[in-house]
Design a protein around this nucleic acid. Structure first.
Length: 353
DNA sequence: GTGATTTGACCAGT
DNA sequence: ACTGGTCAAATCAC
């Protein structure tokens, strides 16, 4: 992403600006006269909404200013040496998982697919080859010994591939050095309508972003993550930490930008009841290509508008070295949602090569 | 019986 | 030629 071209930069700027505008529109919407029935409680909610929107807007401002001040930012953000070798043509080079994507026939060119990796540590005593449940339903379709690797790599695809044509796949490889560590490489995005039961973001979070997750029934997981850049905001390190016993870090992604519009990805919160999950907004308002605006929603059982708006975390990015940060002080977590951290931050950095 | 996993073979990219 | 990724028949588990 270092070499973000002017065109990409412009796109990013546009997206940021658009995101900001949309947030303002949302602000206007929320300021619509409140019905008389809702009184004090709603006004306190209004305040919360106001505060959230302010934060979102300020994040956009921040991102925009960072982008304007750009070149320097670039150098520091990237790296993540442990990211899967991607662009340069590495082992995983072409990845694809989608031979059939091209209708299985003539179009052989492997389409570069966005890919991101995280490392998950399982508790030493826990079952080997644990499910590493990330909330999605995966079906194993292959396993292969990899040259130079002690352990075979497992290949999984979304169980809903056949039914819904979901092309998401992942590869799971145990680390040679530390058998309790699994490197999971996600490829493609989920297009299925099955909300995850747990938290791993099945969409590429920008590099350096960290997060935490819970597996519903697996062993405690902890994700290992390359150290964040020094100059980053305090929010960098922990994006979501809903349960103390595990953490998941999405490490990197190789994105190919033909896949910007990952508007419908979903990710969930650790919730045994599966009631709570986050949804990458798929609305036309939020689906602009280069940024994503994710809204965490209360699940089906918690469907009040207020809860749905409890969190809107916006990370404008995709462009390159720029970063957008959205903090969220969860004054009003959706009902049923428990936060280990009061201050949840979502920090994203650009992720174009 | 149905669906998931295993595993050897095949294919594409380098 | 070699390696990673996928296919698909055989096998396993529920």
């Amino acid at each position: 992403m270092e070499n973000m071209g002017d065109w990409e930069k412009m796109n990013l700027l546009n997206e940021l600006i658009q995101g900001k505008e949309l947030t303002k529109q949302l602000q206007d919407q929320l300021h619509l006269p409140v019905s008389s029935s809702s009184s004090s409680s709603s006004s306190s909610r209004d305040q919360t909404h106001e505060m959230l929107i302010h934060r979102i807007l300020s994040s956009y401002d921040k991102a925009l200013s960072m982008l304007n001040a750009e070149p320097p930012v670039g150098g520091c953000l990237r790296r993540l040496s442990e990211s899967p070798p991607s662009l340069g043509g590495s082992p995983m080079s072409g990845g694809d998982s989608d031979r059939d994507l091209n209708d299985g026939s003539t179009q052989r060119k492997r389409k570069a697919i966005q890919r991101w990796t995280k490392q998950v540590r399982v508790a030493p005593g826990s079952e080997l080859e644990g499910p590493l449940d990330d909330g999605f339903s995966w079906r194993k379709y292959g396993q292969k010994d990899i040259l130079g690797a002690k352990y075979p790599r497992g290949y999984y695809r979304c169980s809903h591939r056949n039914v819904q044509g979901c092309l998401a796949t992942k590869q799971v490889q145990r680390s040679d050095d530390d058998p309790t560590v699994f490197e999971i490489t996600y490829r493609g995005r989920h297009t299925c309508n099955h909300p995850p039961a747990a938290v791993v973001p099945p969409f590429p979070l920008p590099e350096n972003q960290t997060g935490s997750s819970a597996s519903l029934d697996g062993p405690p997981l902890q994700i290992i993550q390359p150290q964040p850049e020094q100059n980053q905001t305090q929010s960098q390190d922990v994006a979501f930490d809903f349960r103390g016993d595990l953490a998941v870090i999405t490490q990197n992604l190789d994105s190919n930008n033909d896949d910007h519009n990952q508007s419908s990805s979903m990710f969930g919160f650790p919730s045994a009841s599966d009631n709570i999950f986050g949804v990458m907004s798929n609305s036309s308002h939020f689906s602009s290509t280069s940024h994503f605006l994710s809204s965490f929603q209360a699940g089906p059982n918690l469907g009040s508008t207020e809860s749905e708006l409890a969190m809107i975390v916006s990370a404008a990015t995709s462009g390159n070295n720029s970063r957008a940060t959205a903090h969220l002080d969860s004054d009003l977590p959706p009902r049923g949602m428990e936060f280990a951290n009061e201050d949840i931050s979502f920090d994203s950095t650009g992720f174009f090569p």
